[in-house]
């Protein structure tokens, strides 16, 4: 059942989608490796849902190629989608039917084994006790879970979840994160679109950032967060003097003073350049009689990187 290591579950090349004059997806190239949780982040209206709808064959595209589980979409859609579970936007159901009946409807559209997966799926998402209630009485969190149960009917190699954590309380988000990681540990792949960057950072291995229909960056979450200009924190005994001293040093973009430390934004990107500048700054501080207790690289969050990349950060 597992996806072969090294194979990609989603690959798009030059994917383009227009709504009249507006370009919703502009030559989008995305590669989602197998057996990973892949975060797809972007502000509202960036093109996340349009991308998902295109990949699932729900809407026609204006150009480019889509490969889903190795099958060309939409031409081989029935083959690819048989092992894909997807939630697009918020999960929708027949409100007059119970949770179990809603699953029966979708199972009927899938292979015959799907009927036998209904109880297991309900149990997996913790809805067995409420499965005979009408969906119109379900909370947002229960609907999200039922949406995941519906995906599981496919025994999916790939789950595509569009903003699955919307409307969930912190406990629900935490449960969802655990659920997603459990899917990945089973060898399934999860493609997760979200604007909750902190959650993507905690949940996903890979990430792509999209804005205004363009993919700005993609790769491992750690790499993307680390990439770019670093901030180095010097803990020292005279932060005010140290701040004045370092502000004028070459390779320093700006300096921020803290209670017992200063943070210097370094104008370099490669490891060797950064190391050389940090060594020089340390030397300068020590030569000026300032005691340096510690030098730390500040952790850059995905959120900060996202804001930098999408030019949403002021200053």
């Amino acid at each position: 059942m597992n996806i072969r290591e090294g194979s990609n579950v989603i690959e798009t090349r030059g994917l383009t989608k227009r709504f009249g004059e507006r370009v919703a997806l502009n030559n989008v190239d995305i590669t989602v490796p197998g057996a990973t949780a892949f975060g797809f982040v972007g502000p509202n209206g960036a093109g996340k849902t349009t991308f998902i709808r295109s990949v699932l064959g729900l809407t026609r595209t204006n150009g480019g190629n889509i490969s889903l589980l190795g099958h060309a979409m939409p031409k081989e859609g029935s083959l690819a989608l048989a092992r894909v579970g997807g939630i697009v936007e918020e999960p929708r159901f027949y409100p007059h039917l119970t949770g179990r009946e809603n699953l029966k409807i979708i199972a009927a559209a899938r292979e015959s084994q799907a009927d036998g997966r209904i109880e297991g799926a309900l149990e997996r998402v913790g809805l067995t006790d409420r499965a005979n209630e009408r969906v119109k009485a379900y909370s947002t969190g229960m609907r999200q879970r039922l949406g995941v149960a519906r995906c599981l009917l496919a025994d999916p190699l790939l789950l595509i979840l569009d903003e699955p954590m919307n409307g969930l309380d912190p406990a629900g988000i935490d449960e969802f994160r655990i659920l997603i990681r459990s899917f990945v540990s089973e060898g399934r792949s999860v493609f997760l679109s979200s604007h909750l960057l902190d959650e993507v950072e905690k949940t996903c291995d890979h990430v792509a950032i999209i804005d205004r229909g363009n993919v700005l960056m993609q790769g491992l979450v750690e790499d993307i967060a680390r990439r770019g200009k670093p901030t180095i924190r010097f803990r020292c005994d005279s932060p005010e003097t140290a701040a004045q001293l370092l502000a004028s040093q070459p390779g320093v973009e700006h300096v921020r003073r803290e209670e017992d430390a200063i943070s210097a934004a370094i104008d370099a990107e490669t490891r060797s350049e950064i190391d050389a500048i940090v060594a020089a700054l340390n030397r300068r501080l020590v030569e000026s009689g300032i005691s340096v207790y510690a030098i730390e690289t500040e952790r850059v969050s995905l959120e900060k990187r996202f804001l930098e990349i999408t030019s949403r950060l002021g200053g």
């Binding site: 709808r53 699932l56 064959g57 729900l58 859609g77 029935s78 083959l79 690819a80 989608l81 048989a82 894909v84 997807g86 697009v88 999960p91 929708r92 159901f93 027949y94 409100p95 809603n102 409807i105 979708i106 559209a109 899938r110 519906r150 496919a154």
Partner: peptide, 14 residues
């Protein structure tokens, strides 16, 4: 009207 059409289509069924 319920929005389930997309989920039915996403099963790959014609």
């Amino acid at each position: 009207s319920t929005g389930v059409f997309r989920d039915l289509v996403a099963t790959g069924r014609s």
